[in-house]
């Protein structure tokens, strides 16, 4: 059996991030909420995603800066847990994700009379992500080539195709699933990738999980000797 050849190759891009300081800071939940309502969406992206690459060896905990600060600095464990549990993967846009974060905090504040204040020096600093995307030169036309290249690319490349292209560039699907389904006629594999919750893996764990799915598929399509 000849391996399926995609009409157009999958070109791996990567994304690199420069952190822009906004000068905004919050010492309690009221200030935190106020800023969350008004910061650019790219700030929401930064605080819900940079942990994945920057602290990738620590995932699945802590999941995002917002939950981490609320839990560990303000010691509002109940709210921290709810923020950590926000299912980022289900939100089609950063504005939807922002609405959910704001909604969870709003709801919590309705029941709180007194606000805890962060100790001096441990305020929350809002930061922005400036994303640079660029082609890496890695590309694949077959599933085997795709697996080979996936082993070599950086975490930034995996993050770009799984998170960034969907939330920041506005695609309706992750890039891997779209190519697998449209160009390689692998709808089941595409669905398997789509079904992953990438926020619950380390970046290396995510790479291995993707490779595992592909190898399983290759095992069933590989020509017999």
């Amino acid at each position: 059996m000849t391996p399926a050849m995609a009409p157009s190759p999958f070109r791996f891009w990567t994304r690199l991030t420069l952190t822009r300081l906004t000068g905004r800071r919050a010492a309690d939940l009221a200030e935190f909420l106020e800023h969350l309502r008004t910061v650019p969406a790219s700030v929401i992206f930064h605080h819900t995603h940079h942990f994945l690459v920057q602290h990738q060896h620590l995932s699945p905990e802590p999941p995002n800066d917002l939950a981490f600060w609320v839990t560990n600095v303000l010691q509002e464990d109940r709210l921290g847990e709810r923020l950590a549990a926000i299912d980022t993967v289900q939100f089609p846009s950063l504005e939807d994700l922002r609405d959910r974060v704001v909604g969870v905090i709003d709801e919590y504040l309705e029941t709180r009379q007194e606000l805890r204040t962060a100790p001096p020096g441990e305020e929350f600093h809002f930061m922005d992500a400036i994303s640079f995307t660029l082609p890496t030169g890695h590309q694949a036309r077959t599933l085997a080539e795709f697996a080979r290249e996936l082993r070599q690319v950086t975490y930034g490349a995996i993050a770009y195709h799984l998170f960034e292209s969907r939330l920041r560039v506005g695609s309706d699907d992750n890039d891997f699933s779209r190519w697998l389904e449209r160009d390689l006629s692998e709808p089941e594999l595409a669905a398997g990738v789509r079904k992953l919750d990438p926020y619950t893996y380390t970046m290396e764990g995510l790479r291995q999980r993707l490779l595992g799915l592909i190898e399983l598929r290759l095992g069933t399509t590989a020509p017999r000797a």
Binding site: L16, L18, I130, T133
Partner: peptide
């Protein structure tokens, strides 16, 4: 080194949040 180079590139795109370097 990477951050310094990104900053140099950013100077040509001041104010932008997503920068594509084809």
């Amino acid at each position: 080194l990477r951050d310094y180079m990104l900053l140099f590139l950013y100077l040509g795109h001041l104010g932008q949040s997503v920068i594509t370097l084809d």
